[in-house]
Structure formats: structure tokens, C-alpha cells
Design a protein around this nucleic acid. Sequence first.
DNA 1: CCGGCTTCCCAAGCCCG
DNA 2: CCGGGCGTGGGAAGCCG
Lengths: 374, 374
Amino acid sequence: MSMQQSLALRSSRVRRGDACTTCRRRKIKCDSGRPACNRCISSGSSLKCHYEIAPARSTTQWLQQRLEDLEESLALLESSTPVQSSKGRIPNIFSMPSRPHPYPIRTPGVVNLNSSSNATSLEVPMPLGDPLGEWWMDGELPVPVRDRLIRIFVSNRWQFSFEFSVSRLEASLRTLPPDHSDIHPAFLNAILLNACLYSRDSLRRLEPVFLARTRRALADSLGLATGLFDFLRASALLGMYYYWAGRNIEGHHYLSGTMRFALACGLHEITSLETATTGSLLSPARDLVEVGERINLFWMLYANDRAGSMLNRLPVAMPDKIIKTMYPYPLVYYETVVVYSAPLERLEALLTLIPSLEGRQERATSTSYCSTRR
Amino acid sequence: MSMQQSLALRSSRVRRGDACTTCRRRKIKCDSGRPACNRCISSGSSLKCHYEIAPARSTTQWLQQRLEDLEESLALLESSTPVQSSKGRIPNIFSMPSRPHPYPIRTPGVVNLNSSSNATSLEVPMPLGDPLGEWWMDGELPVPVRDRLIRIFVSNRWQFSFEFSVSRLEASLRTLPPDHSDIHPAFLNAILLNACLYSRDSLRRLEPVFLARTRRALADSLGLATGLFDFLRASALLGMYYYWAGRNIEGHHYLSGTMRFALACGLHEITSLETATTGSLLSPARDLVEVGERINLFWMLYANDRAGSMLNRLPVAMPDKIIKTMYPYPLVYYETVVVYSAPLERLEALLTLIPSLEGRQERATSTSYCSTRR
DNA sequence: CCGGCTTCCCAAGCCCG
DNA sequence: CCGGGCGTGGGAAGCCG
Ligand SMILES: [Zn+2]
Ligand SMILES: [Zn+2]
Ligand SMILES: [Zn+2]
Ligand SMILES: [Zn+2]
């Protein structure tokens, strides 16, 4: 009996991959009990008893599968990565993009531009030295670069508290050649400018370009009535850029200036989702989406004005008491017309305000150059 | 010659990883001769005889290493496009889950205080077709995968309107082995669950695991006073997951339930940044960061409760009139103590509340839990 | 806790039809 | 030359002391 039993006990070793992680780490015998093994139970940490998640069968295949997936998506992403700092790079990619702020920052890339593997199509003429060439002197930004920057901005916009309708922006970008886009140049360049904060060095050097262009465009459109809202947004974003670039004073100057301008436009008094404005400087919002954008802009200005004035010990531009504007939602809600705090019966009325939700059209049409001037 | 022969006889087989690539492909015996094996020589293709450069020893370690590298670079590039699960949908980031999805409602109430802790009650019906079956029910996630998912969530959290202190989460993750982390398991699993929505195939399969775990952890901690705030966050995130997974009813159910719970906790009455709470269910916030997290949670619940109730034509859980909580800022602001709408002289007092901002330490080594000796 | 032994089982090698 | 499939080496998990 004793021998048999000892043999039996000895062979009672659990199967490969079946020991709980705690026992593994401790290198002790595990009975693989569920939901907790006896060893963990007796040590009082039965809640911590977990089992490996990878398939017990074939670690290698699991890894291989993951590798394939990753490599595929990597290839996809990098095929649309415009600039490779092609110096003899150490394969290790630890070099995070320099952060403008002590906060984890991630630079997402582009996905789903079904650009095939010929990344060379977006090769920019590269004179010596400058990998990006001199397109910016008079030409246009290559579309892939532009789109990449926009994506970067979009997925980091929460850091600015800056919410806007991405789908609308995308729609604008898709239509027409870039030169004739209906996007306000100041707004676009301000977005690109801020995106630079999250980019690696190669794109980062575009910062002065976008900065100059933004300011130029702002100055150009200062007197114009059209595009006033975009002017505001661009101005606010410029302030944010300064802010994050460490130039607090300039940042606060722009932000508070924008805030005062916004007050003049009545952005602090958006009490309903109706598109008709009360005869302010701003033309009536085109639709609910734009109302949402205005509301969000206001609260962005509010938040940053408060924060900025605190940081710089400067007075706030807007007292709390006068604020009437409703709280903002993410733009998705306005876009899908689900946000409405009024009684339900008004929903139908609201729906009529909204043009049909734009049919999502296939993307990836614009892989072309945007330097096509015509 | 005799020596050669005896050697050849003794080890008629070449060592693992030593066969030339041609022989491997042809599945024929290779003598591993340099610079070309005899087989390749006799077949006239001695020039094609090559040997694997990569260390064929320990395939798994090699794969793991490559995996880590890839994950690292992917994290830098990956966009924030959620992967649409069902149907060849056009990948549109911003399509809210508006499709009415007739899913069986199989999980009633999250907030049911009187449901006692019959702990083993987590029989989650797993789809039978899942090849992984219940095996995955219990399992430990490799640390790199976990971290990758977390990063995915972090950079997409604005889509949930869900703001929280990333640096605090990271700090918790860095300390101690995963099993001993002080993160609330429900919160962590809810994060991982939502991250799955943005992941590709191989990680996506973990969805049911995280779902089950989240629900289990929620159930486990339902009665507990400690970690109540994390419970709320996890519950809210679970609701968001359901939403984005197209299960609107369940999503609204969870979100509104969480909202009611939040009301009971007084989250709608955070009128100052002081950490002391007015004797609610919640224990006082540890510091300003947590106050910020609570404020943000409240508004997240607010926005989604409104949107969700509109979507499902259900009553809202919280009337506007009772809201007193101040408007939220991105957590960065609380972390850096620049947000404060009270008079300036109180800033100093506030500063003492905050522990020194943790210096960002170098990227954690974060090898996998099973990373064996090197 | 961990050096190191034991056992397992997978995948590389390659026989052979 | 291909590739199904088999005997085997050895990497890796379990876990003793
Ligand atoms: Zn165990
Ligand atoms: Zn255990
Ligand atoms: Zn050979
Ligand atoms: Zn050869």
C-alpha cells in the first residue's frame, strides 16, 4: 500500500500548464483545484488563485498566432507611416516621442487606409538633410502626413478637453482637393500644430510651419464674419498649443482672449439645442452637430481658462454666475441625436432639425497627393 | 575517418535547430555541414544551403521577445479605431451602438444590495461554440498582454467619456506582482473588457473571459464597503461595454443602476474639492486626484444615462435639478493641482493635500509573469 | 524561496511511400 | 521532390528539499 500509494501520489503531478500561477511562482505542488487550489486556500489567498490564460496546448502556436496578428497590423500601420528616421536604428523601439507633459502620451497611427504595401507612394521628395523636404515652403502637406497628424490629434483631443465632430472633419477632408476644402485653414493648421506635440521628431519639426500658418490664417480671417466659429476654435487651440509647449503666458493670453471673444458671441448662453441663435455675432448653427461643437468649445474654454488662470495667477476671463450654457456631451451623441434632456415628445421635433445622418461612405479614397494644385 | 564515422553513427541525427533550411523544407536528413551540407552539395545547390541565424534554441523565448518588441512598437502606432465585431461593417469609429440588438437579457440588476454573497453564483453561460470553453474562465493574463490592453483602453477612454487617473493606475500596476495589486479586480477587468473592443482577433477572444470576471468581481464585492468607488467605476464600465457591444438594454440597465447607486453615494453633490465627504456610503476621498475621479465618474454617468435613456426610451435615473457636482476637468489637472476655482489663497492649502507628483520612472521591465530565468 | 532534479510532451528531424 | 507521420531529443513545467 505504502509503495503503491507513494507511487500514486508521486504520479499525481498535475499536467503541464495546469498549475496555478501562485504555485508556479512558489515552485510548490499544486493540485489545480478550482476555483482555487488547496495550496492557495490553505495559505488564505484563495481569491488570488488563478490559472494561466494561454492555451495549455502549444504555447508556441499561441505565440506564433499573436505574432502574426501583430505583424500584420504593424505592417498596415507602418505602410502609412510617412517618415522613417532611417538612420541605422537599433531595432529596439524604446524611444518614446518626447512628451510635452508629464503624462503618458501615445501616438496612434493610421489604420484602415487600405494602402497596400507600397509605402513608397507617399514618399516625399527628400532633399538632403531634411527628411520632409521643402514641401511646405509653398506647396502642400502630403495627404498621408496630414491625415496621420489629424488622427493623432483626434485620439489625443481629450487632453485638451477639446471635443468636436470628427466625422464632420473627415467628411470635409474627403471632399474636394485640399486646396478647395471648406475647412477653415486656421482650424486645420491649429489641429496639425497640436498634433505635432505628440509626434516624433520627424514630424515635430513641422511645428514652426504650422504655428506660422495658424497665426497667419487667424490674422487673415480676423475681420471676416464667415467662419467665425472656426476662428474661435483655432484660436483656442493655438492657446492650447502654447500651453502645452510650455509657454504658459502666451497660452493664457490666447485662451482668455478667445474666451472673451466667445462671450461676445454668446457661447455662454446656449440654453437649448435649437439651432437658431439669438442674433449674436455668430451665424446660426447649421445643425445640431454644430450646436454640440459650440457647447463643447465653450466648456473647453471654461476649463482651460480656469486652469490657466490658476497656473499663471491671472484673473479668470469669465465669472461663474453668467454661465447658462448646458453641459456638453461627446459629439457622438449630437451626431446620433440621442442627446436631449427635454421631454420625450420633443424628440420628434428635434429629429426634423437634423439632416439625414450622412451615409458613411467608404473611406480610403484619398491616398493621393494633396499637392495637386489645380 | 573512424572518428568521423563513429560520431556520425552515434549522432545520426543532427541537433535541434541545426539542420539547414533547405533540408528542413524538404524534410530530408541533413548533416549540417559547413559551409554547405552534403545534401545540398550533391543536389548542386550548395549555394542555397543556409542555416538559420536566429537562435533556434528556445523558440518560445525568442517568440516572446519578438512579441514584446512588436507590442511596444504597435503601442506607439496603433490607432484608436475600434474593431467592429459583427458583420462586415464599415469601420466607423463613431457609430454609436444604435442598432436594436435583440439579445437575451440574462443579467438583471447589478445594484441589488440585498442579494447576498452566494459567491459561487457566477455561472456565466458561455457560448458553447467557443473552442476555448470554460477553460478560459480562470486564467492569468500575461503581463504584457494586460499592459497592452490597458494602454489601448487609456488612449480610447474618451470614447466612453471615462476619465480617470492613468498615472495612478500605472503606479498600482507597477507595484507588486499582478496577484497582489491593490487594484480592484472588477475595475481592472472592466478596463480590460472594454479594451477588447479595440483589439484584434487574438485578443478579442478574451472578451468573454473579462466579461465573466468583471461580473464575478462585481458580485463578490457587492456587499463590501471597501472599494465602493471602484465598484461603481467597474459597474459603469461594464454598462459601457454592453453598449458598445450592441446590447443596449443591458447597457442602459447597468448604467442607470450605477447612476442610482452613485446618487445614493452622493456623487451628485460634490460641490468642493475638499476630500472630506458628507458622510455618505463612500469613504472620504484619499486625495484630490480621487475627488477628480469621482467628479469625472459622475459626469460620465450623467452623459451616458441621458444618452442611454434616450436611445432606449427609458426614463432617466437622475433629474437635472438635483445636480450640484461641479464640472469635471481632465485628470491631469487634478494631478497637477492647477484646477481650483476657489480663491487663490487656498491654493497653498490645497497643495499640501497632494503627495509629491510621482516621478515617472523608466518603462517598467514588465516581462511576462512566466518570464523564466534569463 | 529557489537550486536543481524529474517528468512531460511538443516540435524539429527526417524515413519513406 | 513532397509531405504524412513517427521515433526521439530536449526545452520547459512541476515541484522536492
Ligand atoms: Zn496552486
Ligand atoms: Zn492556487
Ligand atoms: Zn542540409
Ligand atoms: Zn543544406
